[in-house]
Nucleic acid binder design. Structure first.
Lengths: 245, 245
DNA sequence: AAGTGGTCTAGACCACCTT
DNA sequence: AGGTGGTCTAGACCACTTC
């Protein structure tokens, strides 16, 4: 028997169990499409009540590791590669997942009053100041996108150029320094053509096609935190999502 | 008091309760960011055990209607409009949600052996036949996309031109006739330029920028069902997603 | 008939927040 | 101290699938 559950651990049992099961799936201990032990069997194996076992399995079903069939059993999803693909990712996470080294050039970082459209998306009163960060995003050293973020921060919350240069990822700073946990985002994508300035920054010809992404990021309590606009080079970027019903 | 729970109903109690709470939220009976009754209060109000109540609330939290704060309470999400935005949608659903009348011109519908790349994405053996459907998609009568679907159907499963013309939506036929329930999809988006043929079909100039979407659709048991490629007119289409952590 | 997942109960104790 | 959500138990009965 592999790892067991520690009832005195501060980590919830359903979470410990989910981790154990996930490991078995990722290790390939269980074949894709094969049945895992039934809930009653797991009760005995791990000395946990069925409710708790179901909570662990629910989690893995939602994450796409398992699927259930009523009256038949619970089965391993054929996951292929990519496994733990997160849905909402930062630019840096996104590139790292594809094996590309993320980089950035910070063009500006200052408090400004943005245009009304952006204040509205951030649910802020007119003339409120927000932190604007303009960056050129690099993949393996080559420019692939122009990113402009507008952050709705509270009094006393601050992000400095040094922090951003050091950490690289805005999401890391939001979470670890400001305790703002991104939980959801609305994103739109469309096609545009590069203006001469954009073309120069991205090192492409003017008029080249770009992928324009606009995203509003929400914290756990659904407060909008960030409005971010990214212009991607059409020839070097492909956007991927996993959609669920 | 509004609707109550019917314990003899075949519909599960947690589901009935979720429907009641969702209705109150959508009606605006509860203000955004205000606390709903505590779980112990709901136990008394609806004569349901707390476990069942938590299951109903869990569902609404996942759907974005409510959020919890440990030690404080459960609160209504400021939902604004758009409410029940589904993540995985068919072309028709997608347009209807935006208030646009979907339409289609079926250019062809036949069984063919597709290129190896597509067989691979559908996890089929070499030389397997699939059903290819080529359509021009219309929004309020105007062409906005060229769609080519490749369907991995089992022996005896068939979709006819008449059905598709009548129902309009492929997803409806999959669900209601073939009992295949779409549950997840992987999608990639990128920018391309229109070839002369594509330009003619979409009634735009050759070389105009297009949004190219490729999607693999999976059923509940993670079997790939459809590979679909859509070319959208860059000037008439905007892609939107809601992302979650 | 036996085994599986789906729903539900009536408790319990803990961690966290407010007063 | 008292209320809230978070975790957990040891049962129960039902619906569905397989033999």
């Amino acid at each position: 028997m592999s790892r067991m559950i520690d009832p005195y651990d501060a980590i919830p049992k359903y979470y410990q169990l989910a981790a154990i099961l996930r490991e078995k799936i990722e290790n390939g201990d269980w074949e894709p499409r094969s049945a895992i032990p039934s809930e009653r069997q797991l009760e005995v194996l791990y000395d946990i009540s069925r409710t708790t076992i179901r909570e662990a399995i629910d989690q893995l079903v939602r994450q796409g590791y398992l699927y259930r069939e009523h009256g038949r059993g619970t089965f391993v999803s054929p996951q292929k590669l990519q496994k733990a693909m997160l849905d909402l990712t930062s630019f840096s996470e996104d590139l790292l997942r594809r094996g590309i080294q993320p980089g950035q050039i910070i063009r500006s970082l200052e408090w400004i009053v943005p245009i009304p459209k952006i204040l509205q998306r951030l649910e802020l009163a007119p003339a409120t100041k927000v932190l604007r960060i303009e960056r050129i995003r690099l993949g393996d050293g080559v420019p692939i996108g122009l990113q402009t973020s507008f952050l709705a921060l509270k009094e006393g919350q601050e992000i400095t150029r040094e922090e951003l240069e050091e950490r690289g990822s805005l999401y890391t700073i939001l979470q670890e320094k400001l305790r703002i946990i991104p939980s959801e985002a609305d994103e739109t994508l469309e096609v545009t053509l590069a203006t001469p300035e954009e073309a120069a920054l991205l090192q492409i010809p003017a008029g080249a096609p770009l992928l324009l992404s606009e995203r509003v990021l929400f914290a756990q309590d659904r407060r909008p935190v960030e409005y971010v606009k990214i212009l991607y080079r059409g020839d070097r970027y492909r956007y991927t999502v996993r959609l669920r019903r």
